[in-house]
Write a protein that binds this DNA or RNA. Structure first.
Lengths: 364, 364
DNA sequence: CTGAAAGCGCTTACAG
DNA sequence: CTGAAAGCGCTTACAG
């Protein structure tokens, strides 16, 4: 009963005789709480997990002791013993830092509501050992779920690896393999359609388009929206005004150079993302063509730079953080068993976008 | 010996009779490897951890089996049993997404070399329960180390909480409490000094300065560099040209509005970071003052926007990713016991910056 | 409503 | 050079 051992560090605190009083840097365990509350560790476990079948009086006592000892269940021990790891992974390979950052914050914020943590795992989609890398991650850490972002979310090998490991995943803004998994998206095609309508409404007829990276589904969806928008107005896009692009500033410069090379040029350019639009604007300025007086330029993303550039960029605001928040939400609901896992894969959430009118597009 | 049980999921695979053959989604454990290699789990453990005292022949056999079964030690189990968690935390509360993102990538990349993962943990510095939040994190997950970023790295309560929990930490770009912990930094003062010299070299004498957020040590260090640079040239900064700022675009606009309000205005403005510089440039343009023809503007950070804005921003490039890489390096060396933990707290690494001359500053 | 036992997949501390 | 035992801090499955 009366133990005289001095407080000890973690390594030496092994064995049945843990110090009677927690050492300064010592962290209380379920055993400490059980001992002080004079119940079994199973009862402590029940209280901490809000399980039923505990007398209210007992529950209160355990809570009080846990509070006093500042007890926090060890996540690692819970993971090892139980069916959940309280960890979700965010797999990404995306050049736009702000996009990845926002996704991450969304996942982290939703995770915190349920005691979950997020592991940010960059992956290189061209790496020859991509499969090994992901499979290794899943074997090393038992993730309760994974959020897959473009372009990884459209790679069969990635999906297969996750499925083989039996790890639930939600895809953000997927393009290929519809219905194969739970998804969270916004309607890229509709957004591009509306942006096209907006340009047409400003009187533009000669509209150029700069494609996005072909690996990213969004490139194709946005292009489709552009084409549909033109056709809905009885027009056909001019093939020589459709330029390749890679979601980069440089590719926007390149596209602009080509678009603005002769006298026969578009009065508006729709770039597949903001960085590309910035490049287009830069090349216009270099060519002495004024934006928006002589050419309107619009983008897609509402990235931080869009209010920095001059003139401010008209663009589409994506609910990036909310997408990841919703994805994490699906995963956590499933992990907690609240959701019907049966049709988990058919979940498909659509979030709204917003057309942000700034100064880079103007009536003809 | 001959088990007829069908492959089972994780939950039902408990007990001594694990399936003889791993189920499709099943993950090999140390027991599987030991059984197939006909050694004890301790020997497998030795091989996986590259410990000595294993016959080369035995080692090879274990390696072969581990490879065949695609065995990966379970991180959670290693953490629980051992002294290391293979997890490091990155605590941040910073408005600049690209800064946090780069730090994270640096930590992740260094971590991977040693099988470590990074937990990104945003914290609100003004939250009343900041201490509880961090202490809770540390109690929940046994982190092997924490990387502390500005402004959290200068908050006594944060340092105390980490120290009380006995978790080693490295501070990135700290300002207060020198020598209290291992640090990684660049010389903000010298960088600002050199930027000031550069402006002076261009013939500017009337130089305004926009301060950064007072919570961030970098603000003070950079201001100090500016003052020193001026004094080294025999000049004293004009007090009415020192404007408050908060590292934000809006505060740059505000500062610019004030600086450019009358005819008696500076010929150059040194903003404490890029976002602020962008704001200063915007307000110059609104006031009809041309950059760089009528006023030079320089920033600090080399953020993604600095090549987007027109004219391109002259600024200081910080080695952000490398800072976090170096911080993680210190932590991991310590965790692996290679480093002398004794003087760990006196480690202090200085990384080089670079003055990036672009187009926003010009000779008078 | 409560608890004793077994086990998660590893490492530690020892013994030989 | 190798292994048996105990333990990390929890949850699961079961018994009462």
């Amino acid at each position: 009963m009366t133990q005289t051992k001095a407080p000890q560090g973690r390594a030496s605190a092994r064995g049945k005789d843990r110090p009677e009083f927690l050492s300064p840097g010592g962290i209380a365990t379920i055993n400490d709480v059980a001992r002080y509350a004079e119940v079994s560790i199973k009862t402590v476990s029940r209280v901490m997990n809000n399980e039923p079948n505990v007398r209210e009086e007992t529950r209160a006592k355990v809570r009080e002791v846990a509070n006093r000892l500042q007890y926090r269940p060890n996540l690692l021990a819970r993971s090892l013993a139980g069916a959940r790891s309280f960890l979700i992974g965010l797999l990404h390979d995306n050049p736009v830092a702000s996009y990845v950052y926002d996704l991450q914050m969304g996942a982290i914020r939703r995770g915190r509501l349920s005691g979950y943590h997020v592991l940010s795992e960059p992956q290189e989609r061209d790496a020859p050992d991509l499969e090994r890398s992901i499979a290794g991650l899943l074997a090393t850490i038992r993730l309760d779920g994974v959020i897959l972002t473009p372009p990884l979310c459209d790679m069969a090998v990635v999906l297969q690896t996750l499925e083989a490991a039996g790890v639930p995943y939600v895809r953000v803004a997927p393009y290929l393999y519809p219905g194969r998994s739970a998804c969270v998206r916004m309607d890229d095609t509709l957004a591009a359609f509306e942006m096209t309508e907006y340009l047409l409404g400003l009187g533009h007829r000669d509209i150029g388009f700069v494609l996005g990276h072909p690996d990213h589904g969004a490139s194709h969806l946005r292009y489709e929206g552009f084409v549909r928008g033109m056709r809905a107005a009885g027009m056909e896009p001019r093939a020589d005004w459709i330029k390749p692009g890679y979601f980069t500033f440089a590719s926007g410069v390149e596209a602009g150079r080509s678009l603005f090379s002769g006298p026969d040029r578009p009065t508006a350019v729709f770039a597949c993302n903001d960085d590309t639009a910035f490049g287009v604007m830069a090349s216009a300025q270099q060519a002495g063509i004024k934006v928006p007086d002589e050419v309107s330029v619009v983008g897609f993303d509402d990235s931080p730079g869009s209010e920095l550039i001059w003139p401010h960029l008209t663009t589409i605001r994506q609910p990036v953080e909310q997408l990841a928040h919703a994805a994490a939400d699906m995963l956590l609901l499933r992990a907690s068993g609240d959701a019907e896992s049966a049709n988990f894969n058919s979940l498909n959430k659509l979030l709204p976008f917003e057309l942000i009118r700034r100064d880079s597009a103007r009536a003809l």
